[in-house]
């Protein structure tokens, strides 16, 4: 009961929720005006608003099918992996090992990027180096193994190899640059957010 109340409260306090509702209302207004854009223009879908709600629902449900093991592993990691272990394998001095682990976990994952945020957060909470966590997030976003297979079948092996090798190299340099660009206060804020989780 307490949880439900809290979810509702946070939801009602978030600005994006109202932005989303306003946009949704806008779609229904477009429907009422009889404007045919987006899906309404192509697939003979009668209502933009209804189609937005139904695809939101569909995407939400398909995400729910993937995330239970991810959150279970977040819980297990939180309880079983001590801070020292995380620092040793992914912390400031973990070097190539840390990068490799970040890559491996990111590439082996499944699910939308939003499911990676709590995983990244628990890594930070346990003392992983920021650049490693950022690298993990970037790999999750663009170079997951299942996605690579899909990419290679649809667009060819050459394309897949070139784009992903380039992406991985840019991310390797980029994550280190971002880490340098963040001031100690910025980092304190990020790790502070993770600490509360």
């Amino acid at each position: 009961m307490k949880n439900e109340k809290e979810i509702l409260l946070t939801l009602l306090k978030s600005k994006v929720f109202y932005v989303a509702l306003a946009m949704l209302a806008g779609l229904f207004i477009l429907d009422a005006l009889g404007l045919k854009i987006g899906v309404a223009a192509v697939s003979g879908e009668t209502s933009l608003g209804v189609s937005a709600l139904s695809s939101a629902g569909f995407q939400f449900v398909s995400m729910l099918k993937i995330v239970p093991p991810i959150f279970l592993m977040i819980g297990l990691l939180d309880i079983w992996v001590p801070k020292e272990t995380m620092i040793r394998f992914m912390g400031e001095k973990s070097g190539l090992v840390g990068i490799f682990i970040a890559f491996f976990i990111g590439a082996m994952s499944a699910g939308p990027l939003v499911a990676a945020f709590p995983v990244a957060q628990i890594m930070l909470k346990k003392g992983a180096r920021y650049s490693n966590v950022l690298f993990f997030l970037s790999i999750w976003a663009s170079a997951k193994l299942p996605i690579l297979f899909f990419q290679a079948t649809a667009l060819g092996v050459t394309y897949t190899v070139i784009t992903n090798l380039t992406l991985i190299s840019v991310y390797l340099v980029g994550t280190l640059l971002i880490e340098k660009a963040l001031s100690p206060q910025d980092k304190a804020l990020i790790y502070g957010l993770a600490e509360q989780a």
């Binding site: 994006v16 949704l24 879908e45 937005a52 139904s54 939101a56």
Partner: peptide, 11 residues
């Protein structure tokens, strides 16, 4: 809200 926006963008 995230998935609401996703639905809106998709449509």
């Amino acid at each position: 809200p995230l998935f609401l926006i996703v639905g809106i963008v998709l449509s």
